[in-house]
Amino acid sequence: MNQFSYVRPASQQAAIDAITRDSSARFIAGGTNLLDLMKNGVLAPEKLVDINRLPLKNITLNNNILHIGALTLNSEVAAHPLVKTHHPLLSQVLLAGASQQLRNMATTGGNMMQRTRCSYFYDITMPCNKRTPGSGCSAIGGINRMHAIFGASDQCIAVHPSDMCIALVALDATVLVAGPKGNRRIPFGEFHRLPGNTPDKDNNLGKGELITGIEIPHSPFTQNVYYLKVRDRASYAFALVSVAAALDISNNTIRGARLAMGGVAHKPWRLHEAEKTLIGKSPTADNFRIAATVATQSARTYQHNAFKVPMAQNSIVTALQKAAAV
């Protein structure tokens, strides 16, 4: 790692000021991804602004809206009674990610800021448009078994690695942001970006902006939820594909449905069209299969990841069956 300076501002405003002043400064919270990237030479900030002591570590429920502070640890969120009661899907996805040690370090905000796990992004000796814009995408034409089947561009086919974000996009969360120009709210689905021609930008945060928390609105998805994560080993591995499924079923009829996928796109991939096919239907394998077919219509595959399309379809059906407990 390069030498850098380290500051620990006492207030949120001081933290934002510190980043705004210095173009190569970065916030550090858990550090589990940032330090990893710095050790690999992918990032070399000259200043780290430690935000861990800011008062952003809380989980509260007001007017049925769940607020999670940005510095709340992944392990704390997963185990919190309010989360388990009101949004069990979020608890499930968090426990499917990383290890308990990492969940004890990684924060809610940091999880959203994770960079892709694409090998070519991590290895500075090989071209990567996300790391060095204009250098080329090595994954296209390279080893792309783990890569995107939705929303990729000819600039980048990397996927977002988070599990947590799959639940948050499914649950229509809102990202709370503070910045040099004040506070703003970003719908979760609009937080992360598709690669397009600017794969170096993972999200729509502006310079100096700090995630302060997320809000999850009240939802009926407290019973029939399931997160299916298909991976190369039983734990402590990134998803080949993952599916978050949430159903609101009464009288054998699906009143509400949420579906989102991980491991398939540059951002947490919400399946709105597939959800629509389920509303008003009964929770049967045939109806789930229809949703899965709709979900994968826009898929585009590369040399090593064609398996992800049938795997995604089967996983959607399986996750919905598990959620519906049928």
Binding site: N2, S5, Y6, V7, R8, P9, A10, A14, A18, R21, D22, S23, S24, A25, A44, E46, K47, R53
Partner: peptide, 17 residues
């Protein structure tokens, strides 16, 4: 803990380590 002051010797130039 006390928040340390920022290092005054850092010129903050980008990409010129």
């Amino acid at each position: 803990s006390q928040a340390p002051n920022e290092n005054p010797s850092c010129p903050g130039k980008k990409d010129k380590h």
